[in-house]
Amino acid sequence: MYSKLIAYCSSKKGAVQDYPFGPEPLVMKVGGKMFALLNEQGQQDEANISLKCDPVIAENLREQHKCVLPGYHLNKKHWNTVVINGSLPLADLQAMIDHSYDLVFRSLTKNERESITKNLRVQ
């Protein structure tokens, strides 16, 4: 499932893979801003993905799912870390990635958003 999540993150418009902290984690960015951090070997030797999230939704997800934790080494109000242990279906993880990406993409300036969209049309 880990590789499917990387592929899904990479498929987002303007998404770029980066390793600013060394070989782990893989950081997915759009417009130079992080929207996902993926660790193949997480805290409990399980892969995990950290995603930006609306604070109210973040709390709800933590209450509903044991595998959703406050963001590890991140702002716990705005980030969740999800342990990839099979307890959440791929579709739910993809919806969480979409939400994170959308939050970050919308925070970009209008020029940055248009540049990303324009570059995709040219390719």
Rank of each mutant, 00 (worst) to 15 (best):
L61K: 03
V83G: 02
C53G: 14
D102N: 15
K4Y: 08
N60A: 15
S87K: 12
W79G: 02
I97D: 03
L120K: 09
Q123L: 07
S50Q: 01
N48Q: 15
S107L: 04
Q94Y: 00
P70F: 03
P55M: 08
L90E: 09
Y19A: 09
I116F: 05
E40Q: 13
P25S: 05
Q41K: 12
K12L: 02
R121K: 11
S115R: 15
G86Y: 05
V16Q: 07
K4M: 13
D18H: 02
K110N: 12
Q64G: 12
L108A: 08
L51K: 00
S50M: 04
D92V: 07
C67E: 11
H73I: 08
N119I: 07
G31V: 09
C53Y: 03
H65P: 02
L88N: 05
S115G: 14
C9I: 00
G71H: 07
C67S: 15
Q41C: 05
D18R: 00
K66W: 13
L90R: 03
G31L: 05
G14H: 04
L5Q: 08
F21D: 06
L26K: 02
L61A: 08
K12R: 06
C67P: 10
E63L: 13
L74G: 09
K66R: 15
R121Y: 07
E112H: 10
H78I: 15
M96G: 01
N48W: 11
I6C: 08
I6S: 09
H73G: 10
K4P: 04
G86T: 05
K76A: 06
Q41W: 04
L69P: 12
I84Q: 05
G32E: 07
Q123N: 10
S3W: 11
M28S: 02
L108R: 03
Q43F: 07
G42L: 00
P20S: 11
P20H: 06
T117A: 10
Y2L: 15
K118F: 13
S87G: 10
L74K: 10
L37M: 04
C67A: 15
V16P: 01
F35A: 10
P70S: 13
R62F: 04
V27A: 03
S3D: 11
D18T: 04
L38N: 00
A47D: 02
L90K: 06
Y8W: 03
V104N: 01
N39Y: 09
S115Q: 15
G22C: 03
L74F: 11
S100D: 00
D102Y: 11
L61G: 06
P20W: 02
G14D: 09
I6W: 04
K4W: 11
M1S: 13
R121C: 08
V16R: 03
Y72M: 14
M34S: 08
